[in-house]
Amino acid sequence: MMPGWRRGLGRFASDRASALGLALLLALVVAAVFAPILAPFPGDVADFHTANRLRPPDAVNWLGTDRMGSDLLSRILFGARITITIAVVAVGSAVLVGVPIGLVAGYYGGWPSNLLMRVSDVFLAVPQIVLAIAIAQTLGPSIENVILALSITYWPFWARLVFAETRSLKNEVFIESAIALGASPLRVMTLHVLPNIASAIIVRTSIGMGGTILTAAALGFLGLGAPPPTPEWGRMIAESREFLPEAWWYATVPGVAIFMVVMGFNLLGDGLRDFLDPRIRRGAGVK
C-alpha cells in the first residue's frame, strides 16, 4: 500500500486544482472564524443605515450595501459561518446515521438489506430538494430546521453507498479469514470493513458538502432558510432579485461566494479521490 500512498500524496500536492480547492476552503474557514475581526462593519449583521441603501461598491463599502443599508462584505463574511455550520452538521449527521445502517445491512444481507434498499428507494425516488422543502416548510424557517431537513433527506444516500461498498468487500479474502478466525461482527465491521471503505466515504463527503451547500442555499432562496436579518447567502440572493439589473453587485456577491465554496469542496473531492482511491481516478489514469 505504501508506494501507492506516497504516489498519491505527491500527486495531491502537485495538483493545482486540489490546491486551489484547499485554498478556497481555507479562505472560507478563515472568513468564518475571524469574521468579527475581518468585517469592516461587524455590527451590520443586524444593524441598518437606511440612508445608505443600495450603494454600489466604493472605498467604504468594498462590496456595496444591501436593501437595509448594511455592508455586504461584512454580511458575506458572517454568512460563511452559517454556510460552514449547515454543511458540516447536515452532512455530518447524515453520515453518522447512514454509515452504520449501511454497514449493518451490507454485512448481514438478508431482509435488513432488502428493507434498507426499499426505504432508501423511497427517499431517493423524489428529488432531495422537494422533500427538503416540504420538511423545512413543515418545521418552520430556521437554520436548525434546514440542517434537520437536509440530514433527513441525505442519510439514505450514505446508507446506499456504504451498503454497496460493504457488500463487495465482504467476499474479500481478508474479511472472510477474519470471520473464520472468530472475530465478532462488530469487530469485523469497525476494524476491517470501515477502514477499507473510509476513502470512498471521505471523497463523497467532500463532494456532498458542496451539493448540500447548494441545496441549503436554494432553501434560503425560497425563503425557507434562516429568518432575516440572518446573512444567509441564498436568502441574500432572493432579496437582491427585486433590485436587478441596477444593483448588480447585490446578487453577484453572495452568488460568487456560494460558487467559490462549492467549487472548493468539489475540487478537493476530486483531488482526494485521486489521492485516496486510485481505482477510480479522474481521467482514468492518463496524465
Binding site: 444593524d47 441598518f48 437606511t50 432579496e239
Partner: peptide
C-alpha cells in the same frame, strides 16, 4: 412576516433592530 412582500420583512427587521 409575509414571504414575497419585502416591505413586511424590512419593517420587521427595523423594529427588531
Amino acid at each position: 412576516t409575509l414571504a414575497g412582500f419585502s416591505e413586511t420583512e424590512q419593517a420587521a427587521a427595523l423594529l427588531q433592530n
